[in-house]
Amino acid sequence: MHARDNGKPTRLLAAATFLAATGFCGALHAQSQKPEGASPGIFTCTDARGRTLTADRPIAECSDREQRELNPSGSVRRKVEPTYTARELQEREDRAREAAIQAARLTDERRRERALLVRYPNAATHDRERAEALAQIDTVTQAAKKRIAELGDDRKKIDEEMEFYKQDPGKAPGAVRRRLEDNTQSVAVQNRFIGEQEEEKKRVNARFDEERTRLKTLWSPQNGGNPR
Rank of each mutant, 00 (worst) to 15 (best):
A103Q: 13
K156Y: 01
L134N: 04
T139D: 06
R97C: 04
Q190L: 06
Q67V: 04
A30I: 04
T52I: 09
A103T: 08
T52Y: 01
R78N: 09
G23L: 05
Q197I: 02
G7T: 15
L117I: 05
D159S: 08
A3S: 15
T17K: 14
Q90H: 09
A55P: 01
G74N: 10
P72Q: 07
F164N: 13
A143W: 04
L117S: 11
A143E: 14
N71W: 11
G152S: 10
R178L: 09
S186W: 00
R214C: 03
A99G: 01
A55V: 00
E69N: 05
T46Q: 10
K146Q: 14
G23S: 05
E129V: 08
A30N: 12
F24K: 01
A103W: 09
E129N: 09
Q190I: 00
Q31Y: 12
K145C: 00
G174E: 14
I101D: 10
V80K: 03
G224A: 03
E200G: 01
P9H: 00
K157N: 05
T85G: 02
R177A: 04
V80R: 08
D138A: 15
A100W: 04
G37W: 00
N6W: 02
G41R: 10
L89N: 13
D138W: 06
A100H: 12
T85H: 01
E150V: 07
I42G: 03
R105Q: 14
T46S: 06
K202Y: 01
V187T: 12
V76D: 09
G7I: 09
V176M: 07
V187Q: 07
N205S: 13
G74D: 07
N223S: 08
W219N: 07
A3M: 11
L151G: 02
G50F: 06
M1S: 15
R11L: 11
E36L: 13
A135T: 11
G225P: 03
S39V: 15
R87F: 07
A115M: 09
G41L: 10
Q90Y: 10
R11P: 00
Q190H: 08
L134M: 13
R111P: 01
I42T: 12
T22G: 00
S39G: 10
A149T: 07
W219M: 04
